[in-house]
Nucleic acid binder design. Structure first.
Lengths: 249, 249
DNA sequence: ACTTGCCAATTGCATATGCAATTGGATAGC
DNA sequence: GCTATCCAATTGCATATGCAATTGGCAAGT
């Protein structure tokens, strides 16, 4: 248990006091000056050192604890946490947004739509009964005219209202669903796969070309809403994220 | 601007009052009962309705605002936010951990190590001067004896202490670095690529086989620490994340 | 030694209070 | 009508205060 020097905590006078305290301590932690395991001075000490009230110091410490930089326990005090396993964040944008952010012209085309019952595989994967009604969609999204991503989607009809009257002429299904359905939970998986024959033709790439496959399933209160497979040609796509040891940067 | 019914906020008596209030309002928002754009009752109203002090109500609302569910402005009040673009979280585990979580036996092998200057590409990619010293490493990680992932790593010698004395016999470089260096910022990218000839041989797969490529670069206070390319055979790997509309689930 | 019980240090939570900052909307003046 | 001004509603921040809950460590007793 290393010592912490109390006078290392220095306020900079910018913004609310509680936030100055928070930043001051955070900087000591992320700079490594206060190593994991060292104990942070108790609230009373900081309160006297900094000339702030206990509640103000408390507020700063509570926030740092919520951010995972410190761990607080009654009686035994506050110690610097060891950085947790990191989480990388990937922004999930709608595909039109994604394309426009790249500065390219967006277009899409609904290649096929069938309304019916789920195939056994789909029902299994998605937790549906064979008797539930679903819509299948096949959409290709284009950026500057070139195929950008191939979307295969299954929508659980009972989970969305107004689906049967919608032809997706004005809005691609993903965006339409965002506006017309609620979701409370999603899961996605990223993997790599070679393009199949049909897929290669639609994406205008060679068969076997490595692609990023993003599979996403969405529920609302345990009821399935939609499942989608997005196939991105690998050589022109990368998902980028930035972060720090304690969370998003 | 829709109306919000004040009496919709109901406490459940479990845990701290401020947290009951927070959860009660959060539930109204995520259930869609309070649509985006509707205004949340002012602190005074909630205070009277719930029989709590203003500071307690305040605390709940401040926290909800930090979580992005509501937006607060002086005088104009508090309104329900429209859900932001989602972030998906991918847990970044150390590779030994990753393998063990799959219930498989972990092993690794350092295939090559060279200490020297960065190649022009590496220097460019990583923001190093040609004169900086770097170590190159090539490591294969195995799960139950089979190649799991191929790691190509560059380490900026000046950014880490004790590197030259370390032979990575006991700990793979990624884990060793976590223990012996600080980092404040990281960036990673995921893409799909076909295995090259050498890579295919080391991973025991066919040339051109689709693979997930994870590239990660790490800095400490703007100084480069390490850059790594992790090549996962695509057919046996997927990165999975779970989340909700307002963040991690 | 080992166990039990107690004390005090430390954090957690809630309240009451006061003032500052922002700004929508009303009002007065032109 | 249009603009400048003021007012009041609302949130933001800090303090002072008191009690509750947890628990490390000491002390007493066996």
């Amino acid at each position: 248990m290393t010592e912490t020097r109390l006078d290392a905590v220095k306020l900079d006078g910018a913004g609310p006091v509680y936030d100055q305290i928070r930043r001051a301590i955070r900087d000591l932690v992320v700079s490594g000056e206060w190593q994991p395991g060292t104990s942070v001075p108790p609230e009373h000490a900081l309160m006297e050192q900094l000339g702030a009230s206990r509640m103000t110091v408390h507020r700063a410490l509570v926030q740092l604890a919520r951010e995972g930089l410190i761990i607080r326990r009654r009686r035994s005090g506050t110690v610097v946490a060891t950085p947790p396993a990191s989480h990388a964040m990937l922004d999930i944008l709608s595909i039109p947004e994604e394309v426009r952010q790249l500065g390219q012209a967006y277009a899409y085309e609904v290649l096929a739509r069938t309304d019916g019952r789920p195939s056994p595989e789909v029902a299994e994967l998605f937790g549906l009964k064979r008797s539930d009604k679903v819509a299948h969609l096949l959409v290709v999204h284009r950026a500057d005219g070139k195929p950008h991503v191939l979307e295969e989607r299954v929508i659980h009809v009972a989970g969305v209202t107004g689906l049967s009257d919608e032809d997706f002429a004005g809005t691609p299904p993903g965006d339409w669903l965002l506006q017309h359905s609620l979701w409370s939970q999603a899961e996605h998986a990223i993997s790599a796969i070679g393009a199949g024959e049909e897929q290669a033709a639609l994406l205008d790439i060679a068969v076997g070309e490595p692609c990023l496959l993003v599979e996403r399933r969405t529920w609302n209160q345990l009821q399935p809403v939609t499942a989608v497979r997005l196939l991105y040609p690998g050589f022109r796509h990368r998902f980028v994220g930035r972060f720090g040891p304690y969370g998003a940067a």
